[in-house]
Design a protein around this nucleic acid. Sequence first.
DNA 1: TGTGAACTT
Length: 657
Amino acid sequence: MTYLINNNSNVTKRVEFAENSDSQSTLRANGLGLSLIKSYEELERPELPIDAVSSQLVEILAKNDTSIIIGETGSGKSTQVPQLCVKAGLHEMGKIGITQPRRVAAFALANRVAEEMETQVGDKVGYKFRFNNETSEETNVVFLTDGILLREAIFDSFLSSYTTIIIDEAHERSLHTDILLYLLRMIQKQRRENSDMNPLKLVIMSATMNSEKISAYFDNAPIYYIEGRTYPVELFYANSLTIKDDDDYVYNAVSVVLDLHESEPIDHDFLVFLTGQEDIEKAQKMVKDDQKNATTRKILPLGLYASLSTQMQARAFSKAPQGTRKVIFATNIAETSLTIPGIRIVIDTGRVKQKLYSSQEYEKMDEMPTPEILRSNLCGVLLELSSIGLKSPSTIKLLDQPNKENIEAALDMLEKINAITVKKKLVKNVAKSFVELTSLGKKLSDFPVDPIFARILIAAEKLNCLEEALTVVAFISSEDVFLPLPSSLKEEEKYTRKFDTNEGDHIKFLNIFRAYKSAKNSLKHQELKEWCVSNCINERRLQNVIKARKQLRDTCINKKYNVGSCGLNTSLLRQAIAHGLFMNACEYDPVSKSFKLISSPGIKVKIHPSSCLAMHRPTTIVFTELVRTKDLFARTVSLVDAEWIKKALDPQNGLLS
DNA sequence: TGTGAACTT
């Protein structure tokens, strides 16, 4: 069937509307309209493929409990569907929430949609992710990370402030998205059955066509396809141009930028994909060095990656000054879901790297990545789900079922740390686990960190060293603050860094935090920066640690914890750490000259060379994490007393009530 | 005696 639809822009488009099967209607806005449109620069906003079907979508959104919308990046679904929900009146009884797997995406989309709806960010349109909340009473549409919506569900298990939840980028299958899909399906059912509550409308959006699975998961919800691409962007692969240096893809990418800078109009901005933060900083510096003497036709090199501050990320979305070209060096955070205004040329270095792989490996890379839920430690999410009220996590029905052993291992761990009790019951001759949250488990789930880290905080309160424990937990649950050591450093110098202590790496973190605080009080801004560099510290990451610490501390204050300090008595702090990490306790084994895991003595580990205890030979240690390379290495290690480990294993332990 | 990098509460 073919319908002709008139839309607001006076452009007539041909739209095919085909009914494929009972469960699946197909809405196609084929690209025909695009050739009729004027250059996007002359329009308020670029014409989007979704515009052709917007009025049908409003009806669909108003009518269906659950809709699945499939559209390519650039179809406009992320910016337009929330606005169409408003047109359908879904904001009248509560908020419309739209989740993103990444913070930048939530931030950028909120800014764009606020502009299109002619409102300020934080007013009718807002965003919310960890450490940032730009929403108010007035907010109708909120862009938030999937992780934070999951947190909200702990405090409001019906998500009652929302009328509509849109899950965007469902194809990425992030751990949080998968859990949310499960949870939303359940909440939708509960709200439908409870006459006091408004129904919950769900919209699942994805870029891939393999959507039957999601549809089946939601009782065969109808699937709608939006076809077509957005405004023209030229895509260059770096290897199709002159390769200057075979080994240095950053150098190649920058060379391409500088070449194209000569030939392209100055108001066409560039987007360059690189693999990581380090490469991005390097590329920015290379461009800056090249531009030192430039007076006209300047380049403004900007970075865009997750750990960049919100302000710096915002610069990537703002306009470059007149006569200056904006060049954005980004990780894959910008690859999906983001459309950055002004970008006309995209330089993708991926191909250059890929030619380093054999064809077999190349094919492997091309396959769909394994959903995160199939390869993650499930402790944290299972505790969250128990806290929301789920009684039988072993029978949880997810889009992809994690293997049973994985779930059992996580439940076993939660039981060992006394966060839950598990009762096995026979249901229709099949053993099922029923989970009950303990009072300790409830406390642990208040903190946005791994449950074993939260246990450190609980023990620390009783040991009167919570102030210090907050610092340690903030460090171990954040990114590594150390800059990579220059290989020019001699071996001896590496291990005589001034914060090292024979108590271990956790106390070293405390030393760094204390030293930074006092340096901050006595030094000027620039001097403080230099202080960080000379101590091999990444200052921005350290600031993130400080933010995480504040968030944890606020939770403690809120829950009326006694936030005391042990001062110089760091033995108390290590005792608290032992109460969290007791499952990771190891004893030195003189026979094998390695450490054996106390909980399973067959496993032998070595202290990672980066640890300040690597050159020592402590009897008993606890570690934060294990990494497997040539051997099994324990990273971030502390010296402990064997007695503390025994005490931590005791269920009657008064420190953890 | 040696880290994949990116994402997130």
